[in-house]
């Protein structure tokens, strides 16, 4: 096999791993609370700044900065739910979208006021690995493994804990579960915290790969939502698989044609999916 094609395929899978975590977080929140957090990528941005600030400005060890970012962004998710989403739970979806879209600009503007427009680099990287002329970024591979571990932990949480089962139950039928004694308000808060913590984990994985700046969300926010819709909004397994599919489309499209065309192909595929399977590629 052409080693360069093999390398492109590996790149695509690793890229899918990068997309997967924010997709899981977005889908978890939508599946449970039924609200799209348009500002999800900006929560990731806040987490990236937190890691950068704690590690480079406060000299915290990197693992401690990572450990702090998860609950911090988780807390931000809870605040977002309590302050912005909860009062709008009964409002038309467009109002909810506009409200979380407004938070997007507040977070961008806030980051710009606090940190300026400069690009901030963590300055951490792992050496690349080479195998028969195929290069794999050590940093991306580590991030990919952490993303898989995060996804597995989420699966275990939803599968084996009481609150996780309640979350899945609410996602399955929002109307019936309250009749069985589950308090949806508590489940919403927990789902928002977990969704936020996943954004925090995504931040930890992205901050070692990308420079952070107030507008970093533009780089992966739109494609995250596209993947969520493609996999089926609220469908976590669908979103997870769609993330890898999208990574491979972008990577191989770039390899056989060019980088610009790869995104054209990805968007064309997305449009075709929406026409053919409007509820998502993996909708049941």
């Amino acid at each position: 096999m052409d080693p360069f094609l093999l390398e492109a395929l590996v790149n695509g899978i690793l890229l899918g791993g990068v997309f997967a975590l924010p997709v899981l977080g977005c889908n978890l929140v939508f599946g449970v609370v039924d609200v799209v957090w348009l500002c999800y990528a900006e929560l990731v941005m806040v987490g990236m700044y937190a890691v950068w600030f704690l590690h480079t400005q406060q000299a915290w060890p990197l693992y401690l900065a990572f450990a702090a970012a998860l609950p911090l962004v988780g807390l931000l998710g809870v605040l977002l739910h309590l302050i912005v989403v909860k009062p709008l739970l009964g409002a038309p979806p467009i109002n909810q979208l506009l409200a979380t879209g407004g938070v997007l600009f507040v977070l961008q503007g806030g980051a710009m006021l606090v940190f300026g427009t400069d690009f901030r680099s963590l300055g951490v990287e792992l050496p690349p690995m080479e195998w028969h002329d195929v290069f794999v970024s050590g940093t991306k591979l580590a991030a990919f493994c952490a993303a898989l571990a995060g996804a597995a932990a989420l699966w275990a949480f939803l599968k084996f804990t009481y609150i996780g089962i309640a979350i899945r139950a609410i996602a399955r039928d929002r109307e019936v579960m309250p009749l069985m004694g589950v308090d949806p308000r508590r489940v919403y808060v927990v789902a928002s915290a977990v969704g936020g913590a996943l954004a925090g984990l995504a931040a930890c994985l992205l901050v070692v790969q990308l420079d952070v700046h107030p507008f970093i969300g533009l780089s992966f926010g739109p494609i995250t939502f596209m993947i969520c819709v493609m996999g089926g909004l609220g469908n976590m397994l669908g979103g997870f698989l769609a993330a890898f599919l999208m990574g491979l489309i972008v990577s191989t499209g770039s390899f056989w044609w060019n980088t610009e065309m790869s995104y054209v192909i990805a968007f064309a595929f997305f449009i075709a999916v929406i026409f053919g399977r409007p509820r998502g590629l993996f909708a049941r």
Partner: peptide, 30 residues
């Protein structure tokens, strides 16, 4: 490529394949 592209690793792979002596790069940041 789009200046907001989240990944350029396949472009790097193609550059390795073509073995250029010189790379001329026009870009912004990041």
């Amino acid at each position: 490529y789009a200046a907001t592209a989240p990944d350029l690793s396949t472009l790097v792979t193609k550059l390795r394949r073509e073995r250029p002596d010189v790379i001329l790069h026009t870009g912004y940041n990041p």
